[in-house]
Nucleic acid binder design. Structure first.
Lengths: 132, 132
DNA sequence: AATCTTATTTATAACGATTCTAAAGAACTG
DNA sequence: CAGTTCTTTAGAATCGTTATAAATAAGATT
């Protein structure tokens, strides 16, 4: 069980539910984007397990806090998460309401010429909205 | 009343409430960021009027649709609006939970090297998160 | 101005996403 | 195994937002 150690090392007990969610989230060739509801359905299908919605919330937030997931900002009512935790950017397709990754190397270097006294930059995220 | 024509030209009836909200939103030297709750309080103080929360929502959304306000994406539970509708970017101060504008000219040109078949770029927004 | 029509406001109910709660169950420690 | 702590769970509670339907105001028509 490849996730047991990873969880334990993060101070999270490797429970059955967490391990199952790990399977769904991290046992893929490609990273992907999801909403909580989205993920809850995926879990119900992918495994034939019923994990309580509260647990899905708990787990996703725990994983986010540990840095295994990233929350993504789009001005919509939906909250998206990303299993790709590396620095990168996004397209947001306004018609299909879907996210698409943009590799860092596919965005020219971004120079922020303005500085704020006493603050340092934690991240720079580019969101490119697409329409037909 | 300087907003009456503006509203009428947008197909919005210049009601007392809308005109009052226009005062609060657009009668300022500087543009600013706000949340709905935020704005509702400001209205209650600035003017001594009590506008129904539903009307504040309606009006803000109407103004947004007409392009007089911009919604801003940050991954937090709060929905921000901006009275600055020109193309620009933002700092988000994670500690103070506050937005700061970045003029377009303070961000070097952004090259998006990836293209999506059949889609065109509607906007490019940069969000720079700040910490202490 | 009186009347008609349509848009707007309003309080409140309804909603959906998320969080909280407290009890039951599972994981860890010695 | 016994004791402790963490996790899961269903359901209640909460929060921001949207829908509802009646009252009101604006605009158009006469």
């Amino acid at each position: 069980m490849k996730y047991i150690e990873k969880l334990r090392n993060s101070g999270l007990r490797p429970t059955k539910q967490r391990l199952q969610i790990c399977e769904v989230l991290f046992n893929n060739k490609e990273t992907f984007h999801f909403t909580i509801n989205n993920l809850a359905k995926k879990i119900k299908k992918s495994l034939n397990a019923k994990i309580s919605l509260a647990t899905v919330y708990n787990t996703v937030h725990a994983f986010e806090k540990k840095g295994y997931l990233k929350k993504i900002s789009i001005n919509t009512d939906q909250t998206f998460f990303d299993t790709n935790t590396t620095d990168h950017h996004h397209f947001y397709d306004l018609n299909e309401e879907k996210l698409i990754d943009i590799k860092n190397s596919d965005v020219g270097p971004i120079k922020i010429l303005k500085k704020i006294e006493g603050k340092k930059i934690k991240s720079v995220e580019v969101l490119v909205k697409l329409e037909d």
